[in-house]
Design a protein around this nucleic acid. Structure first.
Lengths: 199, 199
DNA sequence: AGAGCGATGTCATTCGCTGACATCAATCTA
DNA sequence: TAGATTGATGTCAGCGAATGACATCGCTCT
């Protein structure tokens, strides 16, 4: 491996920069090449030019390396809900947040597709994805409570929001899809309203 | 340990019966006593009078032992959706299924409370619970498709159903709760409809 | 009586993950 | 500027989850 060869160059500091990014990159490459289970943390670290131990300093486990971006997404959702105009209905505030998140994801479509391909191929990763989505739902519910929304409306609205998001996301990653993400969010929300409006 | 002492009794067959049940019992006891992470599969097996290897013949992993009942729940949900009268609205069929499932859970309230206490205390177990719920949602969506319901209505209705179920379950678990489960399902569904009926 | 079966046990191994401690360039401080 | 400190990384030892391969041995059927 040439990676270790270039490590001590007079131009660089002691360590090559962006260890976290290199680990992310190495991980997704290997997960795509061989699959998640067939990839060893030692292999990821080696490709990134680091020790196995270092991987676990950046990511609590082998799965978490794929979910690093979810914190930023959560902040965006929360701030959008919090900043909605006074008097905005809970579900409308949540819808605005989802549209903002969708717009953000759209900027990294290729990466999102790769990431999703890896996740859908592995049950352990699907579990992790679900708990991340659940965390987003809980965070939005919190934000709604800050706006004075009561239980169980806050929790219910957060969860419904995630349902809408998942539905829109599915359409968005479809190869045949032409619509943009925020647009798909609005469409999913409309469909949800039809589903729940029955007697 | 006296367990091994009684293993070869002239009354019994070669093995003590109900190995699966003994493993479940031992597992939940230990998870309650020491917590999930602090419990070793070897300890569970020992308490059940079996070898560690045998545990993994009954359960694919250390978590699965807590979710053995979800298959029966899924069957009940599916058959109830499938058997709903012709012309029943998708969400109404799903609501009927959830009420049936709720009624079933009610028969084992103590066990359900213990199990939930263990799950809520551990993130890994919460992950597993979420994917089980997701599987229930997918199964109901399948059942709806059998009834001629199209996408994305089928998927959306399944997921909304699980949202309703979770909300009702939370209330049902509460020590102050007096209402019965099917009743709580109807109440949660009403709240959901209010959430989504806005402009 | 013997063959085959099925539930269980034993053993060895891989890998995820963690704690403890070492290293060493960069940086701060006296 | 010598020396202490810090922070990112490496090294090593070890535990426990999980799996494959093979052994054991009552039971049942011929």
């Amino acid at each position: 491996m040439s990676l270790t060869v270039i490590k001590y160059d007079r131009v660089m500091g002691r360590w090559e920069p962006n260890a976290l990014g290199r680990l992310q990159q190495a991980a997704i490459e290997l997960y795509l090449e061989r699959g998640f289970e067939q990839t060893t943390v030692a292999e990821i670290a080696k490709r990134a030019g680091l020790a196995e131990r270092t991987f676990f300093r950046y990511f609590v486990d082998k799965r978490e390396v794929l979910f690093w971006g979810s914190a930023a997404l959560q902040e965006l959702l929360v701030s959008t809900v919090v900043d909605a105009p006074i008097g905005t209905a809970p579900l409308v505030a949540v819808a605005a947040a989802l549209e903002a998140a969708g717009a953000l994801l759209q900027e990294r479509r290729e990466g999102a597709l790769q990431r999703q391909a890896v996740i859908e191929a592995n049950p352990e990763l699907r579990e992790r994805e679900l708990i991340k989505l659940s965390s987003l739902s809980a965070a939005m519910a919190d934000a709604l409570r800050q706006r004075g929304v009561n239980e169980p409306t806050a929790t219910l609205t957060g969860e419904v929001g995630i349902v809408v998001f998942k539905s829109a996301f599915e359409h968005w990653i479809s190869p045949s899809n032409q619509q943009d993400f925020p647009q798909l969010i609005r469409a999913s929300l409309d469909e949800l309203r039809e589903v729940t409006s029955g007697n």
